[in-house]
Amino acid sequence: MISAIVLKKINDLFEAEYKTNVNVDFLNVEDTLIEVEYSSLNYKDALAITAPNKIVKTFPFIPGIDLAGKVIESNNKNFSKGDRVVSTGYGLGEKYFGGFSSRAYVNSAYICKLPTNLSTKEAMSIGTAGLTALLCIQSLLKENIKPNDGPIAITGASGGVGSSSISILSNLGYDVVAITSRKEPNQNYLKQLGASKVYSLNEISNNQKPLNKQLWSAVIDCVGGEILSNLLTEIKYAGCAIICGLAQSYKLNTTVMPFILRGIKLIGIDSVYQNLQSKQNCWDNAKKLFKENYFQDNMKVIPLSEVLSYSEDLINKKVTGRLVISL
């Protein structure tokens, strides 16, 4: 028997339940079986639990878009029993049974090996959010944005991608400005991660001019909508905006002016279907890129049995940092 969070649909009603007596035969079989040691609770997971029909299409179902653990058995010769591995994205926890289960079958085409300097717990303190941040910073470095080019603005700074980005960029010597809708409870936390300044959304200019004073060498945006529209008008010449979220809105109201007069770029990041080698490169380099205190200060470890209640808190913006799930 295994433990798992199971989503059910009975008539038109949805139910999420923590169960300790799930038969392993309930799992959808793939070529690799993993003993899951840790998972993490992301916004998408919380949405799958509190409003399953928005994420999940087939029931019953096990959610969880991240997992890390040890290989029990695999038909892929590249994996051996005991290998420490991580899997995120590719439909895990959306199309395929996910990480909220003490054992999980995963297609080996979706699995990365963990480097020796990164534990499974640390991998899940990074998770999909941290992986997305790593991909954002990877793009920023490709654009040759340097620390002395000026500050980098990060929106949605209190969330997983935002807080991860602050840790990485400050560790690399960048001046990071955090922008959050929850300034008062999170200001000290964000500065501890490495932000030099913390602004609330209403402290950011809402000037509707197509171009404003050049303030930012780059922007990492996790929220979309009006705040991104405003920040685009303030990016310095040849800077860039790297976008990876839509917490505020999927809409973007802008003009061509910043792009044709300042030569800025708008770069989209997807971590879900990113090619596996790119993900492997991120995991291999993760430990040295994050500030050491990130792994101590940015995660709270919870048991699988508390995932349902924490999902409500996450939806209601009562959670700061990463929630790592111990299985």
Rank of each mutant, 00 (worst) to 15 (best):
N212T: 07
N293R: 14
D149W: 12
Y199R: 11
S200E: 11
N206V: 07
L304K: 12
K19W: 07
D45N: 07
S326H: 14
L172F: 13
L252R: 10
K146L: 12
S326R: 15
L140P: 02
S305M: 07
L327N: 14
P303H: 12
E143D: 11
G64R: 03
L211M: 08
Y250D: 13
Q187W: 10
E292P: 08
K146A: 11
E122A: 13
Q192A: 13
T132M: 02
P115E: 03
S196R: 14
P210C: 06
K183D: 02
N144F: 12
I137D: 01
L169S: 05
K121Q: 13
L7I: 02
G321A: 12
T180P: 07
I145W: 09
E226M: 11
V307A: 06
L169P: 02
T155R: 03
P115A: 04
A46K: 08
Y90D: 00
I126N: 05
L131C: 03
G160Q: 02
S139A: 12
S170C: 09
E312K: 15
T128W: 00
P60L: 04
N186K: 09
V307C: 05
V219R: 04
N78T: 05
G194L: 09
L141Q: 09
N53C: 14
G93Q: 10
L314Q: 08
S311C: 08
K191T: 14
D175A: 08
I325W: 06
E292Y: 11
F295P: 04
D31M: 14
D270V: 03
L261N: 13
I154E: 02
D297Q: 15
I179E: 01
L141H: 02
G194F: 11
C112I: 00
Q192P: 11
